[in-house]
Write a protein that binds this DNA or RNA. Structure first.
Lengths: 196, 196
DNA sequence: GTCTATAAAAGGATAGAC
DNA sequence: GTCTATCCTTTTATAGAC
């Protein structure tokens, strides 16, 4: 069926665009990444690219949504523990374009009214829910004590994860997984040694 | 003396520009802040503005350098403890434009070759030195135990501080100082209860 | 120190043909 | 689904007058 053929081709092209957009971001950064450059690399003109995405921001949100889903499926759903979270961070080291995109795009999108503002608000809400589950399960199993303040701990873990990405982008020798592991060990430690 | 008058006027105008640039960033974000908008608000044309700063990035680096120096003088130099660091964070809540500028500008500047890349590398190096001093002094006074890994702890505190700014920009109800205090309490706790 | 004028480039988006 | 053509906007930066 040509209909199916066309459809499949469209899907494939879409995927190709998302991948190439990421390559460009890795090379020149999100701010300097232009639709024209991406279009040319996938053998399209800039208006040809716009056929797939209604706006620049829509394109990059799509890239990040795809990452969210992949990470959820590969690392988080099968193992709802802190190790799953660490696995995402460990994997991020192999996809610098995604890290760069997230850091730059999320920063600019903090301004109210930005096209991607809602996406990031929801992304963080999802991350909070996920880590809340992780800690509550760790409490249920006894690894983490009942005195640990879950929402606060969740915010701290997310903040460290984000902040380390910044440090890692500036200096790739920063070991994000190691530092996050230390933080988690601190949480575990506090659990078994109630404050005076 | 007209020479002194002119000079003083130039200095004052410079200061005014830095302040107005900050206002614009607070309103529309760093990415959307344009030299033209800033120029008009201070009663200059855009080329008139360029007389003071050789480039967009230079202007914003100047804004951040001024903040660095002010924070150092007001909060950090007089009290080289973690409370000084907390005082900076507490103060940041009253200058959202500066927080937004830092988060957006630093994110885009992580790309090698960016005009502000070196500035941020040095900024982070300075922050590390400062917090290293803070912790080592706390160790000397006995507040923090000798088993705490200083460089790692420093990186974690910086990461949390950065990450919380991100969360706070998206939702101003996030209490950065409270969460940082909890983190610090965890460090203190670990100090007095050696791992098994 | 500030302006006018202008460059020069790049950006995203749209209309309409094929 | 993709292109051509084009628009309109915006941006930073420079040259040279006053």
């Amino acid at each position: 069926m040509t209909a199916r053929g066309r459809y499949a081709k469209g899907i494939a092209k879409r995927e190709e665009i998302l991948q190439v957009a990421l390559d460009v971001v890795a090379e020149v950064g999100y701010r300097k990444a232009s639709n024209r450059e991406i279009a040319e690399r996938v053998g399209l003109t800039q208006p040809g690219l716009m056929h797939y995405f209604s706006s620049r921001e829509e394109l990059y949100m799509e890239v990040l949504r795809a990452k969210d889903n992949r990470d959820l499926d590969r690392f988080l759903a099968p193992d709802l523990t802190f190790d799953g979270w660490l696995a995402v961070i460990a994997h991020n080291v192999s996809v610098p374009g995604l890290v760069r995109l997230f850091v730059e795009f999320s920063a600019e999108a903090t301004i109210p009214g930005h096209p991607a503002n809602e996406y990031f608000v929801e992304h963080y809400a999802g991350a909070r829910r996920l880590l809340t589950d992780v800690i509550e399960r760790a409490q249920a199993s006894g690894d983490v004590g009942p005195t640990v303040d879950v929402p606060i701990t969740v915010d701290i873990i997310i903040a460290v994860s984000d902040g380390l990405q910044m440090q890692w982008l500036l200096d790739s020798s920063v070991d994000m997984v190691e530092r996050l592991t230390r933080l988690w060990n601190g949480v575990l430690l506090a659990s078994h040694r109630p404050a005076a």
